[in-house]
């Protein structure tokens, strides 16, 4: 590859799956890639540089050109509405966005309150249902909100459902399926087209292989 590509990687939940996918695509990541505490990691033999960012910040790094490419969950992309190319569904880290609450919660009233990390997405969802709700933005432990009466329900991502169950909450409505996506800065896409297209091509192949090898019953854990 001629020009160096900067890739924004989300720390946390998606990171392991994403690193595995990149390795499958033949990108030689450093051995300590998953365990390093560095924020910038170079993979010189494939002229790529990885920046390790908070997942919600990945679209921002990519939109403003801090990174050419990024890997981000669809949940984050729906919320950020960044001007980036969403080129490929990587099929990893599958989960879904859902409305959840206490099992015996009252019917929706006019003062219905929704706690979430995704205020725009939640507001859009309820608006599309023709309902007016008050959206309360929290940054973590969303499950707390209905337990202490801060909100009537929550909008959050659900992967196994264990957190909900342990806190006595139940899923009420599914909003949408979530997987991780490959996103590309519109300018980088034009200026480093050959390199980026090559990477998209490789990843497309890997995603296809993973889909084919996937157990039909448990469509979720694609790579495990």
């Amino acid at each position: 590859m001629a020009q160096e590509l900067t890739v924004a990687m989300p720390k946390g939940r998606i990171f392991q799956d994403a690193a595995k996918l990149l390795r499958q695509a033949g990108i030689q990541l450093p051995a300590d890639f998953e365990n390093s505490r560095k924020l910038i990691i170079s993979a010189e033999n494939c002229s790529m540089k990885f920046i390790l960012a908070k997942p919600v910040d990945v679209p921002t790094y990519v939109e403003y050109g801090g990174a050419d490419i990024g890997i981000a969950g669809k949940d984050v992309l729906m919320e950020a509405e960044s001007d980036v190319y969403e080129v490929l569904d990587l099929g990893i880290s599958a989960c879904h966005l859902a409305v959840a609450g206490l099992p015996d919660a009252a019917k929706r009233s006019s003062a219905y309150k929704v706690a979430t990390k995704y205020p725009k997405t939640a507001a859009r969802y309820f608006r599309e249902q023709g309902e007016q709700v008050e959206v309360i933005t929290l940054n973590g432990s969303i499950e707390l909100a209905p337990l202490i009466g801060l909100a009537d329900c929550i909008v959050d991502i659900v992967s196994t459902g264990r957190t909900l169950k342990e806190n006595g909450l139940v899923e009420k409505e599914k909003i949408s399926d979530i997987t991780s996506r490959l996103i590309v800065n519109p300018v980088s896409y034009r200026l480093k087209k050959a390199d980026i297209d090559q990477l998209i091509g490789k990843l497309t192949e890997v995603v296809k292989e993973n889909l084919n090898g996937m157990d039909q019953k448990s469509g979720v854990e694609v790579l495990k």
Binding site: D83, V84, Y85, E86, V87, L88, D89, P186
Partner: peptide, 10 residues
């Protein structure tokens, strides 16, 4: 317009 190839395919 939204540059969303994934959404287009879906």
């Amino acid at each position: 317009y939204k540059k969303n190839d994934v959404g287009f395919r879906e």
